[in-house]
Amino acid sequence: EPHRKQASCSAQEENKVVTLLLGAEPEKVCAMPDPALPDSDIKALTTLCDLADRELVLNISWAKHIPGFSSLGLSDQMSLLQSAWMEILILRVAFRSLLCEDKLVFAEDYIMDAEQAESAGLLELHKAILQLVRRYRSMRLEREEFVTLKAIALANSDSMHIEDVEAVQGLQDSLHEALLDYECVHHSEDPRRTGKLIMTLPLLRQTSTKAVRHFCSIKQDGRVPMHKLFLELLDANV
């Protein structure tokens, strides 16, 4: 084991897990707001919920491509996704928004500034996600780190319903090791970088909790149409 670790920390060796994760990244999704609807908070929220639903389908098939995820029992796969789905959505928005100052790139055709967020009733959430974006921007988060961190967020979702705790721990360990190996090769100048990345996860969790609560209350209002998968996962977090 120590020998293997030493060997993996060399520029010659390709990081297999990170390479697989890069290859598993879902394609881009367009928001396509309905041009027939007049601009309103309901239109903005309908667009976001529809976008989230389509992204969720892609994120579930992405999860299946995380090395080791499909070896977990089906029940544990479900539990991890039911806990982490919003963290995954938010981390993707945050990464897309890195190059866009003070705006959230929900999709290439759906970029939201603070004013638009406020009129959709999403200002607090907008601010919280931007705080995360600023953290990652200041670290110059790389695509390799983003895909690995996203898989870690899923494996580390702290579901209370895990049946095979050891198997989930094994998945966390292999992803953690992949990140350590990547940083060892690409950021040897900053030995604390892995820790810094992991330390952004509490803010991601906090932001995700806020988002789920907010969309649950929108659901209860009943004014915004929501697709079944999005509703199913909102229910899972209540």
Binding site: H65, G68, Q77
Partner: peptide, 20 residues
């Protein structure tokens, strides 16, 4: 878990999962 039919179905649809 009974309630989570869509998630269950999407996870069961095979799409070349990768094992370690």
């Amino acid at each position: 878990k009974e309630k989570h039919k869509i998630l269950h179905r999407l996870l069961q649809n095979s799409s070349s999962p990768v094992d370690l």
